[in-house]
Design a protein around this nucleic acid. Sequence first.
DNA 1: AGGGTTTTTT
Length: 1166
Amino acid sequence: MQTTTCPSDLNTFYSVCVVRMGRLKKKHNWKAREQDSSQSGAATSDVVVEIQDAGTLKGVDESNALVLPASKAKKEKVVKKHVPKKQPLTKKQKKQLQKVLEVKQKKAQRADILSKLANVQLPESEMKLLYTTSKLGVGDKLYQSKQRSDAAEEVTSAEEKISSLTGAKRKRKNEEEEEEENEANRDNMTDSSSEDDDDDDEDGGAPEVCIAKEEKAGSSPQKQVEVAQEKAAEKEATCLKEVPKKEDHQPAVFVPVDRLPDIQAARLKLPVLGEEQVIMEAVRENMCVVLCGETGSGKTTQVPQFLYEAGYASGDGIIGITEPRRVAAVSMSQRVAKEMNLSTRVVSYQIRYEGNVTSDTKIKFMTDGVLLKEIQKDFLLEHYKVIIIDEAHERSVYTDILIGLLSRIVPLRNKKGRPMKLLVMSATLRVEDFTENKKLFACPPPVIKVDARQFPVTVHFNKRTPLEDYVGEAFRKTCKIHRMLPPGGILVFLTGQAEVHSMCRRLRKAFPYRKTCLESGTEQKDTEEEMKRFKKVKQKKMVSLPRINLDNYSALPVDEGDEDRQAGIDDEEDGSDLDLELGDDPVDAEEKCDPSLPLYVLPLYSLLAPEQQAKVVFRPPPAGSRLCVVATNVAETSLTIPGIKYVVDCGRVKKRFYDRVTGVSSFKVTWTSQASANQRAGRAGRTEPGHCYRLYSSAVFSDFDEFSEAEITRRPVDDLVLQMKDLNIEKVVNFPFPTPPSLDALVAAEHLLVSLGALEAPPHVGRAKQMERARLSCPITPLGRAMAAFPVAPRYAKMLALGKQQGCLPYIITVVAAMTVREIFEEMDRPAASEEENAKLAQRRARLAQMRRLWAGQGAALLLGDLMIMLGAVGACEYAGCTPKFCEENGLRYKAMLEIRRLRGQLTTAVNAVDPGARLYLDAKMAPPTESQVVCLRQIVLAGLGDHLARRVQAEELLDPKWRNGYKTPLLDSPVFIHPNSALFKTLPEYVVYQEVLETSKMYMRGVSAVQEEWIPQILPQYCHFGPPLENPAPRFCPDSGRVKCHCKSTFFRVGWQLPAVERDYPEGLDRYKLFARFFLEGQVCPKLQSYTSCLLSSPSIMLKTWAKLQPRTEALLGVLVSGKADCQEALLSAWEKNNKYLLSAYCQWLPEALHEKVAENWPPI
DNA sequence: AGGGTTTTTT
């Protein structure tokens, strides 16, 4: 590998900025070499000197890689590369080579000087100040000077530029390996893309197929062009790097920001600030950049500001940043606005229900789902010049899909001459899914790493790993920490609400706290003031709590509790006997109540009421006590608790599992991932050095998965598939997912969407392989488009699309909103903290049960089941003004009710948009549905939940007593049950539909609603196999539809449940023509012919006789109908439109000649 | 006949 320093650059560079930069040049140089050394394995001898230099310089200053010329390496590389290849060197080349050699010599000398200079270098902190003071008020940036040098250089060299970023190097390495390959590839791609026009990618991986080539009618012509260009764009931009263009030579824009001094000072402490130059260069030179930095690096708040200052929000484009959570989008926008001293009109946010975006907005924070919706409206995101995907390591489904989409959009935009940048920001180093995924980025984007400003956290592993009672272990460890270690909050990670509460109870019992002063201050305080107070409190605590200094650990992680032993809180070995005894006798341990050491214990989980959560996040613990938060995963990512010094990690998580085949979900506790455990540990080092106690051994830890799986691989994807189809991505299998969902999941999704009518059913013809492929590329239907407009799960979207009948829409919207929002009822089965609380809980439980019965209604309403409870609950809550008080009193989660209210608003708007005739409005005083409305609602619900139909186990199937009161479903072998909390628990209807099956102690259906048997073949024909038309009742002509109808028995798919005969369209075929002919002759199809029925030469009924063929007139009539494809009124009318004499002569054969003329005069008889 | 949910997002 070649050196990355290029002397000519340096010369240019120095001439431009040495004057102002002073010592910075050293750093610059150093950094270049330092990065070289990272690849030392491949280093050639001519850089050895520099590597050594780097070695000696390393650690002198880590802070500044700012001054890197970006284009240096390439030139050299070119020389080196081409010299051995092209054998006779041209004079020019020789000259160049000579120059390079000279330059190297100079460089070596310079390196020497620099290493000497390094000895007198300023410490990092001062360095940073120097850098910034040099910058202050100058209105100029380092990378601008650098850019000028680039520009100058590009005059002589048309080579593409390479920065000295770690990732850029990887990229370069890659290029070298693939350079020849690339040339070949270019041809290959051209070839394959021409094949592509008719063939559907055998390789399955061709990225260019992922977005449908043609647009459906009705989309903008502009978009069509762009999509058509896509392939070309990709070809040119397989490497997401920008070929230098004229524009690049223009001086960069610098947008001044007027920050307040204290903010400016605070910024300087953030590690990202030192990387501004590197980041901005990378962004300038690459379409896509990955930025890696743990929490605390400041990337979320600073990078948008860098981009702003560099002019990425000047003119007509803005900067967009996505966050996986709403709170983050809102708070980050506010913080950045404050830091930049700009109004929220300029730095704004947009989340699902609200936003403060204006026409002045330059920086827009939003949730990832919001951006995905925007892509639906404007595929190329013309509004944005940069998109930043934050927290990409969390791998939320929308983040993943956005990255996939943007990997195509960015080159397209570039091709169009309106370039856009993509910045993927990730905390962990797990970026291979992005960088090594050839389908996503043919050429890996550069990765920039940023240090985090975190205090060291010492990790202590247990020697042994309790497999059963990890809660008990957590309890004992927490007690020990509290008893023996210096002040500092404790954060305990457990897996669920129940565990959290029981732990809280045990801890409170062990270290009782008198809550006199606890609940006094309820008023909201300014956070900063709180923090100040908090610090004072901490100082006070120092006096009252025991003190052992554990902070001077040398290395981390500490293994196997060695340090624990020193500290005297080791679990194992000698001291462990006592602990184990305690462990074996929990009563004893817990009775050892110690009121002299008050512990302020608080629970924390997502579903906890926000004001309870606020206690943890905003309010400091009372004076003289230690804070102990017992939390679930919320504390890992969503909430940050101040003042935590100790983390106790049980090493487990509760996760939802979906069975891909049956759709059954369950919750299971499993080991976490290493990344997740490290994230938990990191929570101890936010405010000072901390300690993390892992209740498992390092061996167990090393067996953890390195990372948690991407969400998209763990859940059904029907909603995502519908969204993507709506974006005209027909072959979702070929979409460049960072991690693709399983094929099973995709097949299941398409299947469901076909059943719902959102996608066209795949053809049943062709070879198995073709059919298989067709099943994964069903085109979207108009219904599907309408459904995609509703921001809810496809099953529910179907209900909304259908809900127009009988004024049901407001109810359907409400039911859908309630089904979409999770946990609308408060959980009251948790272990109570005290007898008093226990009694209170029991009372509230009883009250909720009573209300549920009330809301479920009686008679007809009751049959809507659990959905009626939801409807009633929401209706009652809204009627009462949706107050916290009403919710509290009636066991409703206030937050859930607010969400439902907002979702109803959004859905109402969406329905009105799809069908302006609907003219819906949100009615707070919605009257209960009438009986007939309830029936209508049940049918609409059935239409959406058709694949979730269950039938009571029949007497003859009742072989096993376990099946009593059970229900059978098409996909499950074992029975499912109605949950005792369900409105229909006692009703046990023959047929029900359910929202989902959740496996706990049994398979329980949730969200159950009763179904009338005869509705099933009518509303769910797609799930039924119909028998032959019945003789009795006989087929008839239906004047309303103009079609031939008949009764058929049917069975439900897979399970073969016999369903009652219902009337439906007569099946297609000759018999339908015969019947139609008969009804035609009888004058039913055209009433004007009724007067001739008595004159017919044969009875119309002979149309159906088996010997019908013997009669020429039957055959004639039938033949004409068949040839005109006229087997219903509508088809007949259109046949007459084409030919107004159609059927005349065949009909006349049935009439005496005397009438022919008269008939002909009045033909067609309409 | 009888009860156990983590966490986000459009």
